Amino acid sequence: MPTRLSDLAKRLGLDQSTVSRALRDDPRVKAGTRSLIRKTAEELGYRPNLAARALAEGKSRTVWFVIPSLGQPVDREPAEKAGPRLLELGYDLLLAQHYGNLDVYRRVLGRIAAGGADGAVVIPHPASDGEAEAVLLQRGIPMVYLDRRVAGVPVPVVTTDNAAATALLLESLIVASGRGEPSIGTVVIGFSPEANDVERSRAAAAEVTAARFALAVLRGTELRDSRDLPLSGLGAAYILASSERRVGEIRDLLGRGKGGAPTRIFAGTFDSWKGPTDGYGRVAVAVQDFAAMAERAVALIVDALEGRIDPRRPALAGSEAYELPLAELRTIL
């Protein structure tokens, strides 16, 4: 017969409430007593009834990570880093993917609002109107956006300082282009400002940096619409892109400059580069600090769950942006 909490308390000569608190690592129980209780529980093979605990506490002690997919580093790596930290703090991480499907995204948030989790860290769907998030906030369920936010929703976001990171990335390539190579004449922006606030921030920073160096600016969409741009006479072009696929597309188009002469390309992107590097003058990768992002998001959620922050107050249910520096600027060519 399994050992019950009452059996453990009787063996130790303590109240069940004291034993229960000690097993949850409650600091109100002295450290020595907590250690003795945990040791005795292990000896007796005691396993807590998680369903009963959740019912008694009114908590599931779970935090959901809601992400688009496992395909991109920004989607999967913060969840990988957050899981062990949540376990240390007594919470389990559940992972939900919405696959870019708005209906699935809303359904997942609806399940959280219905009591499926105590809190949530969310990479939002770009088309969300904020209604599903509003239900969570009305019910006092802590929520933190990761990477980007939904406009008008009073939820904090943990992200990278995208403007500073983009400027650093572009400047590194401009400097590299002047070392024995033709200087950069044009900045090609492969971001989609209409997509989300991260893309907008990066595109705006690229434009500002290009203007500071008196460089021409072209959008990636403009390149896809025109295959005869007079770029070859500019010496070198810099491409700022958010995925290897876009870099490849624009590189192919740039190679078709006036007269068929190839254009020297210096490429920059975020997080990873999986494509070939042949034909580039330089390839640089701005690596976001996913460990720091996960740590900050977990701290915000757990502080709210443990009562250190009221999820209904602006301290958490506000619109703060926690913008973190890059982990590194990596040159792979």
Rank of each mutant, 00 (worst) to 15 (best):
A127L: 11
T221E: 14
P142M: 05
G130D: 07
T33D: 03
A237C: 09
A120D: 07
L102E: 06
A54S: 15
S232Q: 05
L95G: 08
L109E: 12
V135K: 02
D129L: 14
V19E: 07
R148V: 07
L109Q: 09
V158L: 09
V247R: 03
V66F: 05
V19A: 09
E199W: 03
V122L: 09
A127R: 15
R219W: 13
L326K: 12
N196Q: 03
L254F: 05
R179F: 13
S192P: 07
D197C: 03
V198Y: 14
V283I: 05
A304P: 01
L300N: 02
G318M: 09
A176Q: 09
A284R: 05
V63I: 15
I37T: 15
D92T: 14
V122Y: 11
R34A: 06
Q16V: 15
R61N: 13
I184V: 14
E323N: 14
A117R: 00
L254S: 01
N101L: 08
A132I: 03
V283T: 05
A51Y: 02
D129C: 11
K59A: 13
A261E: 14
E199D: 12
L231A: 03
A31D: 14
T263A: 12
V74R: 06
A267L: 08
P311N: 03
R245C: 00
P68W: 05
V150M: 09
A237P: 01
K258R: 10
G257F: 00
V187E: 04
L169R: 04
G220W: 03
P276F: 08
